[in-house]
Structures are given as C-alpha cells and as structure tokens.
Nucleic acid binder design. Structure first.
Length: 246
DNA sequence: TATTGATCATGC
DNA sequence: GCATGATCAATA
C-alpha cells in the first residue's frame, strides 16, 4: 500500500528555526529567482538548520510515509525554497547565474550516503564529442551543493539542511573527471555500451537511469547504426563528493 | 557495509 | 518518452 501520507501540519512560522526567510511569502508555491549569486548564497545560508518537515510545511507539501516514495522530494523542495527557475529544462537550475543545484545526503559522520546524478549519457553522439563540450563538464562547472544531514536514525522529516557550498572543480579534479569521461566515452564509441558497468571510472561512473530495466532508449553501435538500449546516466561517486565536504 | 543495478515521483 | 529531482535494496 502506498497511498498513506502524513501531511505536514506546522505553520509557516515554524519553518524558521533561527532566522526568517524573507524572500518567501505565505502561501507562495515557489520562491522568486534570486537576482545575484550573493543573494542565492544568502538564501542558502539562511536555510541551514531547517528540517525537511519545516520546508515541506512552508510549501504545504505532504511527506510520503515511506522513503521509497520520496526520491527527489528534498531536492525539489530546496529548488522551490531557493528560487530555481529551470524546472525540467536541460539548463542550469539558475541559468542567469550559471549555477547547478544539488542536494546531497550526508551520514552522521558527514560523508555522502549516495552517489550524485550528473546527467544522462548521450549514447548517440558522445563518441564524437569533446570533454569540454560535454554535458558532464558543463554541469560540473559551478555547483551549489546543499548537504542534507541524513543519518540512518533520522526520518525524512527530521533530516536537516546543512551549510551549502558553491563548488567548482579544481584543476586536478577537472583532469581526473576528464580522464574518467574519456575512458567511458571511448567504450561507448567502440560500440561496447553493453559492457559498461558501474565499476568503471575512478570518480565518474555510468549507471542505469530509467524507470525500469525494461526501458529502451536510442544508442549507436560502432558504425553509428541505431540500437535500442537501456538509458544510462553519469554519476559522481560518493568518494569524490566526500572530498568537497572535507 | 559499500557498491551496483534498479527504481520512484513529477511535469511536459 | 524524456527531462528534471534522486534513493532504494539486492548483492558482492
């Protein structure tokens, strides 16, 4: 059974543990876009300390009683609270600022609990593209990581927003990601997409990205001829994102 | 227990 | 179907 939801009942005022969120007005469904990077960072800092339940109450959103139904919910709530404007378009969450937003669950020791999805693998043209022009490189140019304190003892609503960090890859991180990407792109370019496993890549890996393992998307074989295969995505390993929060 | 492969929700 | 947002849960 999956229809049982617990509606958050706290008033808007209770979503402000320490500081007000002045850019949010009562009843607002989505925050207005921040006008500058400074404003975005200010908002992110003020969100620190809020719980997921607080945020859900702000927007009158029900929290699923079972975590399996909540995938992506925290990310969507933070988007709304910070005023991301991209919605589901293939552009940065804050297009005018060139900033991508990612929430990342941390365990009690401050280590990422999960890998981080980056983007879908463009199976048909990745072999002919360069790292610098790749969606992976673009997406990871400037990322606002919003950590979520998500220890195993905490329920979804008890999870707490942490201190955000605006990150850009260092030169060594950039070259390491590039090396992984080029290895993976090479395998796909040889027409060996079915040989790809999540074991490949030191920091960047490829894993399925689909509603189920039966889904088929469009790819190319080694001659460029169309093939149908499981859609896949690039993910950052938790060991990589851990270095961002050290 | 860390990791991989599979899966869930929403919008267009 | 494909884009966004991710975490679940079986297994190594």
């Amino acid at each position: 059974m999956n229809g049982v939801h617990a509606r958050a009942r706290k008033s808007r005022a209770s979503c402000l543990p320490e500081a007000a969120l002045p850019w949010l007005s009562p009843g607002q469904r989505w925050a207005a876009a921040p006008s500058s990077e400074a404003e975005l960072l200010e908002r992110a800092h003020r969100l620190a300390g809020c719980t997921v339940a607080d945020l859900a109450a702000c927007f009158d959103v029900s929290l699923p009683s079972h975590g399996v139904r909540a995938k992506g919910l925290v990310g969507a709530l933070v988007e709304r609270a910070l005023g991301a404007t991209a919605r589901s378009a293939s552009i940065p969450d804050f297009p005018e600022l060139g900033i991508e937003l990612k929430t990342i669950p941390l365990d009690a020791r401050g280590r990422p609990r999960e890998s981080t999805f980056v983007c879908t693998v463009r199976l048909r043209d990745i072999a002919d593209s360069a790292w610098e022009a790749s969606p992976v490189c673009s997406k990871l140019t400037r990322v606002l990581f919003v950590p979520i304190e998500a220890g195993t003892t905490l329920s979804l609503g008890e999870r707490r927003i942490g201190a955000a960090r605006l990150w850009s890859p260092t030169r060594s991180q950039q070259s390491a990601l590039r090396a992984d990407w080029e290895e993976l792109a090479g395998v796909i370019g040889r027409g060996d997409v079915e040989q790809i496993t999540a074991h490949l890549g030191l920091h960047l890996q490829i894993r399925p990205k689909a509603a189920s393992s039966h889904v088929r998307g469009r790819g190319s074989d080694e001659h460029g001829a169309p093939v149908r295969t499981l859609p896949r995505g690039f993910y950052l390993r938790a060991s990589f994102t851990a270095s961002i929060f050290k």
